[in-house]
Design a protein around this nucleic acid. Structure first.
Lengths: 64, 64
DNA sequence: ACTAAATGTCAAATATAAATTACATTTAGT
DNA sequence: ACTAAATGTAATTTATATTTGACATTTAGT
């Protein structure tokens, strides 16, 4: 499923997918895929994204 | 680095590495490696572990 | 409408998480 | 001390996250 929390947090920082990708050290396609929801990133990447966006793991990646 | 939070949460449930592995659907070696800290699990596996141990992502996997 | 930047998406290659098999060591119970 | 279960660890294989390169579509500015 889509990760709208992450998309919103990125928007709040006014980062493009490319900018966020550069900050966390992955490609833009990886960021795009995570937001689109069709994959399963590693915890290290999730942590890097959280720190770049000033959010916690639970805020961006928890799901019920 | 070692994940002592996870080790403690598993101990609190009185699960062996093997039992936790069975519950979340991975091998015992994968659980062992995560606790030992020498790798980087996927977020889906982290979520499965959290649910098995009644903990949140932040409680088990946040790091500063 | 035109342009440039941002986003969506795909196929092929590469890096690495996780499985498998196997053996050694430690821990807890008797 | 003996035993069985739990844990630590290593080599090899398999599955999949991520990269790379490329092209199409959407969005925002002028």
């Amino acid at each position: 499923m889509k990760n709208l929390n992450m998309k919103a947090a990125r928007a709040a920082k006014d980062y493009s997918q490319q900018e966020l990708a550069d900050i966390v050290g992955v490609t833009r396609q990886t960021i795009n895929a995570i937001e689109k929801g069709d994959y399963n990133p590693t915890i290290k990447l999730c942590l890097a994204i959280c720190k770049a966006l000033d959010k916690t793991l639970d805020e961006l990646f928890w799901e019920d």
